[in-house]
């Protein structure tokens, strides 16, 4: 904390930069090592773990592409995350629109209903959920995961979207009403276009944890062809447990897409991921 003291002048500033810098190295170095190791052969990893790879050979990636299910997992994760977020945004925005733009009997009750959903840890209801999905034939089925993720993330989505929709001036709505637009048209043509930035934030807020989750697939998915990326990695790790280069390549491949999007869209990512915690 002494680094906070401005009176120590340059020394304080230096200490601050050293502290931040060391932390940044600690955060980034492991990720860089993971990426670099993915180009190395097993022998290289043992003999010269810290040096740059001798060549940026894509052999390890080729193994993953040709011999493992990782590409398949990747597609499954994309489908699950994409559809869940799509349904979430449509259904969540609809509900939030009703709650934020209309006065009606029961508005407060329904708002509380959604709010209370925020406090229920669905993981602890995994047993009944399992039986329920089994009855519906949704175990070992991507649709089952989509249902769970959508339901689980709905309260937060409704909560975030309600906040944004409330901030829109009601005169816009009145104006469109005077212009003869139907309620549906007002929502779709006037109001929703104005909250697209909020939808991006809510989308990221939901997409990242869904993409990364492996708890629900662990329980609901058994067949290799329906495994998601995060879950599939565990199987892949069992299979290639001694081929370290391939393991690192698998991790890198799994981390790459989300990292690239993050680096390009970091501002929105940070806003999105912290959206639930910042009022």
């Amino acid at each position: 904390m002494s680094t906070m003291n401005k009176k120590s002048g340059d020394l304080g500033t230096w200490l601050m930069h050293i502290f931040l810098g060391v932390n940044a190295v600690i955060m980034l170095y492991p990720i860089i090592m993971m990426a670099l190791s993915s180009f190395k052969t097993n022998k290289e990893i043992f003999s010269s773990p810290f040096s740059l790879p001798q060549s940026f050979s894509l052999d390890n990636f080729a193994v993953i592409w040709n011999e493992t299910n990782v590409p398949r997992y990747f597609i499954n994760s994309t489908i699950v995350t994409g559809l869940s977020v799509l349904v979430l945004l449509v259904v969540g925005t609809m509900a939030a629109y009703a709650l934020s733009r209309y006065k009606f009997k029961g508005n407060i009750m329904i708002s509380l209903f959604f709010l209370s959903g925020l406090m229920l840890p669905l993981r602890l209801a995994i047993i009944p959920l399992f039986i329920q999905l089994k009855t519906l034939g949704l175990v070992d089925n991507l649709l089952g995961l989509i249902c769970i993720y959508t339901a689980m993330s709905l309260p937060a989505t409704v909560f975030i979207m309600t906040g944004f929709l409330r901030s829109l001036p009601s005169e816009l709505e009145d104006s469109a009403r005077m212009d003869g637009a139907s309620e549906f048209r007002i929502m779709v043509e006037i109001m929703v276009p104005l909250i697209t930035p909020a939808m991006v934030i809510a989308g990221i807020y939901n997409a990242v944890p869904i993409w990364n989750d492996f708890f629900f697939p662990l329980i609901f998915i058994q067949s290799p062809e329906w495994k998601t990326l995060a879950q599939g990695l565990t199987a892949f790790f069992g299979e290639y447990s001694i081929n370290y280069g391939v393991l690192y390549a698998g991790l890198t491949l799994a981390a790459l897409p989300i990292m690239l999007v993050f680096i390009v869209q970091s501002r929105r990512f940070i806003a999105g991921m912290t959206a639930g915690a910042i009022k």
Binding site: L20, N23, M33
Partner: peptide
């Protein structure tokens, strides 16, 4: 401080990664 944006991104980068990746990565390390 200088590098404010960079630090933000660096500190937040692991947050976006799956626990599975983090767990296996550190198991290897």
């Amino acid at each position: 401080p200088k590098g404010y944006r960079f630090y933000q991104i660096a500190f937040f980068l692991p947050v976006i990664l799956s626990t599975v990746i983090i767990g296996f990565q550190w198991k290897l390390f």
